[in-house]
Design a protein around this nucleic acid. Structure first.
Lengths: 218, 218
DNA sequence: ATATAGTGTGTATTTTTTACACTATTAAAT
DNA sequence: ATTTAATAGTGTAAAAAATACACACTATAT
């Protein structure tokens, strides 16, 4: 059969020691005035990933971001006008790079806003469920995933890295054990640079060594 | 936009100490005469999971099987007549329960056959890629997955369980370490029953304790 | 100078993983 | 009755990884 076909995008970033997701306020039937994941109908002859890139470019001003397919949602009742199949993607962006920190108004969208994942508003369609699934997937893969490094700046402190882990795992970790483990993994490069602009002891900066990371997951 | 919408099904079983997948020989354009995953167009108002159940029932005679969504495939060029979006599912069945060990001929399908995953024929569409992805997913999740127990009989020997692990991991495991680990996990029930009909020492049978398994993954 | 806020470090204990080889049991063949 | 063939079943020592835990250091602001 034929079905309407959209992509939706769970765009994550890390800001103010929190994991956040970009949501848009709908300006159209159905769910007018509700918050929803950014998404749109896919064009004829458009690859799904290109549609996702288009959407995340419109909302963050970024190209070449980290993308991962999450799942397809096609419940017959998810849209009042009949089945609309959506393929959900997870995108990870660095907050420092995001261009339009708030998205301009369009006909179908009043505003866009970053929400911490543990403080989301009511959501349109089955978007709550989609987000829930995306968190679980990130969490499961955490131990062998690039995700933390796609959310943080190129140069980050170990405390920031620990905060990303804690946000995804939903629990606090012991600082000494976390650092010991990260050092033993062997894919973090210790830099001779330090944080600036803080009113306390500046933390050392680290970088991901992508070659070593790749080798380790074989 | 509107798109054609199908589901495809990677149906796994464990037989003769091997992991096998059910493939069908196509009797229709395109890829007539090629082997392909069982799949079909989804009906209007049919839930995806119901379509998958329909397909696996037609091919195995089984209802209530273990299902998991794998991913959506929607490459513009995957079908010569234009984009056909497919959502791939993984199904796991017990070989002993499969009713029609070979599927009767239909208009669109010459025959169906179980193929060991490491000895597949050439495949239609992007089905090789779909299978590849399904193996990787099963492998990654193995340590906290019900999959091995959905592929084996209700009562199984530790050697059979080890063979499933080995087939998915693609490597051999040490027998003593494997058994020690399985016992420590604590969700295997040792039965007072033994294999029958073998011409050597009969192995003890075990069962999965689903309650304990559930508790352990929380 | 001192208050503040976050950085950075080591050791002992427990748990998990790994490496490794022989005896036990059964049915079938002689 | 004995032997053969095939697989089941078992323990220990060493290495590696995970856990629990507390205090001194440093940069800035006042």
């Amino acid at each position: 059969m034929l079905s309407h076909f959209t992509v939706d995008c769970v765009i994550y970033t890390f800001h103010e020691a929190q994991l956040k997701i970009l949501l848009t306020e709908r300006n159209e039937y159905p769910y007018k005035g509700w918050w929803a994941l950014p998404g749109f109908f896919i064009e004829k002859d458009e690859e799904m990933e290109d549609a996702v890139k288009r959407i995340s470019y419109e909302n963050t001003g970024l190209k070449d971001i980290y993308l991962e397919q999450l799942a397809a949602f096609a419940g017959v009742k998810r849209h009042p006008e009949g089945r609309i199949l959506t393929v959900a993607y997870v995108a990870l962006v660095r907050y420092e790079n995001v261009k339009n920190k708030v998205k301009p108004v369009t006909s179908y969208m009043k505003q866009a806003k970053w929400y911490p994942i543990n403080n989301l508003p009511d959501l349109a369609f089955d978007h709550r469920e989609i987000i829930q699934l995306s968190v679980e997937k990130l969490k499961k893969r955490l131990s062998y995933s690039l995700a933390p490094f796609e959310l943080l700046p190129e140069k980050f402190t170990l405390t920031q890295l620990q905060q990303v882990y804690e946000a995804l795992l939903g629990e606090t970790l012991d600082k000494r054990n976390f650092r010991k483990k990260m050092n033993n993994l062997g894919y973090l490069k210790e830099l001779d640079e330090f944080q600036t602009g803080v009113s306390y002891r500046a933390a050392r900066l680290y970088k991901l060594d992508r070659r070593k990371f790749q080798k380790l997951i074989e």
